[in-house]
Amino acid sequence: MNLKITNLKAGLPDKEILKGISLEVPSGEVHALMGPNGSGKSTLANVLAGHPQYEMTAGTIAMGNVDLTELEAHERARAGFFLAFQYPVEVPGITVGKFLKRAVELRRGEEGKFNVSGYITELRSAMDFMGMDQGFINRYLNEGFSGGEKKRMEILQMLMLNPNFAVLDETDSGLDIDALRIVAKGVNKLRGGKFGSLVITHYQRILDYVKPDKVHVMVEGHIVLSGGPDIVNELEARGYDWVKEMKK
């Protein structure tokens, strides 16, 4: 499904961070969002997911024909928006199995008629696909997981929730090459249909495995450059200084 952001202004109550973002990811495409530290990439991810800490002062966000702008975080999720967190929190006391069962049930709107055995089969096969030990099902969510395990758990959730649109917030940071391949495999699995995605990254590396249809570059709360995948190589070769100049 497509994601359309129009003139989005948002930030913390005393600080505007996103200063008028307009961006469209057409249905079925994967776009990359790059930019130097502090450019507002993670803020954008959180604002799109409906984080209550951020205030949206202008603009609209739409996913397909659903206007997300006024929806709360859980309503966005149930409409099919997914955020893979840069730093997934640890949630002691709630097992992966119980958490995911409920999340899937809510997403599918199948309260009361949820097929538990079907869910377990699906979960086991998704875990196999992600190369995750079945033992994770009974562990507390993210508690004591390594960085790579947390990121895989994010992608596992994405596969299980089958979103219409997913934002991956620096899912590649801190991953070794094997973990990166598995994460990319998860994203690529959903590609092909109407699934759309915005892959936020600081590095070129993940884009070798998840080929973006288009690349956007963000500097100081503005999209300063959008274009084909070639931009990635140029950024890799020349750094971010020249795009910072474009902003001026």
Binding site: E72, A73, P88, V91, G93, A103, L161
Partner: peptide, 22 residues
């Protein structure tokens, strides 16, 4: 927020975390 981002309504997210805590 994490639970809400996975579709848990705020009241249910609070309850799930409280249960996990206890």
């Amino acid at each position: 927020f994490y639970l809400q981002s996975r579709g848990f309504p705020p009241v249910e997210a609070e309850r799930a975390l409280t249960e996990g805590f206890l």
